[in-house]
Design a protein around this nucleic acid. Structure first.
Length: 560
RNA sequence: UGUCGUGUCGUCCAAUGGCAGGACAGCGCCCUUUGGAGGCGUUAAUCUAGGUUCGAAUCCUGGCACGACAGCCA
């Protein structure tokens, strides 16, 4: 397939580096998640960027777990991340790495810096360190422990490693510049003491490297060429460079880009974790979650997410993508590729009074008008049917051209019918619609050419399969969920109608055999996918992925 | 009020000193056995003040606005 060559400021840099032979014409990227949560759509942007660049430049792409903090990290997250990266097409081949595998090397590098007089063991506690760090506008004060001898530092650091000290009592710090206007350079901590079990190292280590110290070394060891990260690390780049320069080792180039923000969505691990822990959703893979696992379960295809990441581009300015672009992307994919089906979500009984009782006939339905090769199927038709409640109005509003007393519509793939009367219950609700059908207007017949304003989907009552359908909507009611009243947090913007469960839906018989994860378009309604967790054999549960674009909803709004 | 970074249609992204263009959203029309899809059209932007230049969104200077940074998180 022909593809337009992608272009962005990062690829421009890489192209320049290729010309100047900066990295011997190599391109090697990485995705370095911390396994402390599930991946979300923002990570998808990073994965697509890094893996995409490697692919486009015939380079390599690593998956590396930045597991330098044992107190927050778990194997469950490691497993989910591997699955998600693969699902998004991130091809790391056999290059699955863990920062924790480099702990020994990092330790030795730290010893090197100590010997160079560029690092020292500091006895200041966290509070004292904060007090001496200075502020954004004032310089910091040097630690009283800053000038310990290399021998003393080496001894102390070894004892830190051996577990002789308790958490927080000592740190190893780089000796840089307490006067630096960049706070990250004010003698930053390289190692802290943590007596905690690591998910892979167990209790081997009592000291753990901080991000800044560890990250450049990880990149250097793996011979990464372009270390792509998000904007908040821009101020850390001088430190990244300082460590690598002092160590005199292979030195990748860090490049920062703007992380993804999505309207009507939160994308911070802290907030997502809160949604899960406080059970505002059913889990990390709740179909309303902006996690990769959530989107997958909802019925988003990986192709649609990859395509979305291409469309949003890469730049350095903060931005918030309109969630409608994501919806566009999944509609585009599912429109082209999903099997059509008829499904009545809110059933209303419809009786064809002049249709023979007991008769059944087949109607030929197109499987996908966008794809001729997908063929047709037959759908049973009979005297008693269900239509959607939305498709009948006793008193039609302006511009409403579906069924109402005296009006005609076409039953898709079947006959033109006319509404003759209604049956009501004690409260005056319409519980049945009585219609006559025109026998000369079945699809395919000459008489079928007559123009009617609307076409309506239906299910034969006798053949209907009952299923559960879950209607999902955006999780938040506000474009920016963090915009709240004084004293409230983002949870106050949760959409109470984000999940509506419909238990009495009527669908075509063939949908009983739908497979987990399979996506359908329910005609005139939206795209739906078989929930992989809650469906049983023969009784699928359908998740609404996204509605169809609804022009009628807009007209209705206008006339209200 | 320190350092670093960023300011282009409603929203994203382009234009790399030479006609400000694309996508989504919106609006209008056409088409349609999905009020879907599709087609056509359309609205709409260079933060600001100077400067350099034949010519500036782009280069320079000064404002202004926004973002990130004062974890032993990443």
């Amino acid at each position: 397939m022909e593809e337009k060559e992608k272009s962005d400021f990062i690829r421009d840099i890489i192209n320049d580096d290729l010309k100047t032979n900066k990295f011997q014409r190599r391109v090697h990227t990485r995705f370095p998640p911390e396994p402390n949560g599930y991946l979300h759509i923002g990570h998808a942007k990073s994965i697509c960027l890094n893996a995409g660049i490697a692919k486009d430049f015939q380079g390599k792409f690593n998956l590396r777990f930045d597991d330098t903090n044992p107190s927050k990290e778990e194997q469950e997250y490691v497993d989910s991340i591997i699955e998600d990266v693969k699902w998004l097409g991130g091809n790391f081949e056999d290059r699955l790495f863990y920062a924790s595998d480099y702990f020994e090397q990092m330790y030795n590098f730290a010893v090197t810096l100590i010997k160079k007089g560029k690092a020292f063991v500091c006895d200041l506690n966290a509070d004292e360190m904060r007090l001496t760090r200075g502020t954004l506008t004032e310089p910091g004060k040097e630690s009283p422990y800053r000038n310990r001898s290399a021998e003393e530092n080496l001894d102390l650091f070894a004892r830190m490693k051996n577990g002789e000290y308790s958490n927080g009592t000592k740190t190893l710090r780089a000796k840089i510049d307490m006067m630096s206007p960049n706070i990250n350079l004010r003698d930053p901590v390289m190692y802290r003491i943590v007596h905690d079990e690591h998910h892979r190292q167990g209790n081997t280590w009592c000291v753990y490297p901080t991000y800044d110290w560890a990250h450049g070394i990880e990149d250097s060891i793996e011979k990464i060429t372009h270390s792509i990260c998000t904007l908040e690390f821009e101020n850390h780049r001088p430190l990244y460079d300082w460590y690598l320069n002092e160590l005199e080792v292979y030195h990748p180039q860090q490049i920062e880009f703007a992380r993804l923000n999505l309207s009507f969505t939160v994308l911070s691990k802290r907030k997502l974790l809160k949604l899960v822990e406080e059970k505002h959703v059913t889990g990390w893979d709740d179909p309303r979650m902006p996690t990769i696992a959530g989107f997958r379960r909802r019925g988003y295809t990986s192709a649609s997410i990859i395509n979305f990441c291409d469309m949003i581009g890469v730049a350095k300015r903060d931005s918030t993508i309109d969630v409608s672009l994501l919806e566009y992307s999944i509609r585009e994919d599912l429109n082209k590729h999903s099997q059509r089906a008829m499904a009545v979500l809110n059933p209303l009984k419809l009786v064809l009074t002049n249709y023979p009782e007991g008769k059944t006939e087949d109607c030929h339905a197109v499987n996908n008008p966008e794809d001729e090769a997908s063929g047709t199927r037959s759908v049973p038709f009979s005297r008693e049917l269900f239509i959607d409640q939305d498709d009948f109005k006793e008193v039609p509003p302006p511009k409403y051209y579906r069924l109402s007393p005296g009006m005609e519509v076409r039953l898709k793939y079947a006959y033109i019918i006319k509404c003759e009367s209604v049956v009501k219950d004690d409260q005056g609700n319409v519980i049945e619609v009585h219609c006559t059908y025109d026998p000369d207007t079945k699809s395919g017949m000459a008489g079928a050419n007559r123009k009617v304003k609307a076409t309506v989907h239906w299910i034969s009552a006798a053949h209907a399969k009952d299923v559960e359908v879950r209607l999902y909507d955006r999780l938040f009611v506000k474009e920016n969920p963090d915009e709240t009243e004084e004293g409230k947090d983002f949870l106050s913007n949760l959409n109470s109608g984000s999940l509506q469960i419909l238990k009495n839906c009527k669908v075509e018989p063939m949908l009983a055999n739908a497979e987990a994860g399979q996506g359908f378009q329910f005609e005139r309604t939206g795209y739906f996918s078989v929930d992989p967790k809650d469906s049983a054999n023969g009784t699928p549960v359908f998740n609404r992925v996204v509605t169809l674009k609804d022009t009628w909803a807009k007209i209705e709004q206008k006339y209200r």
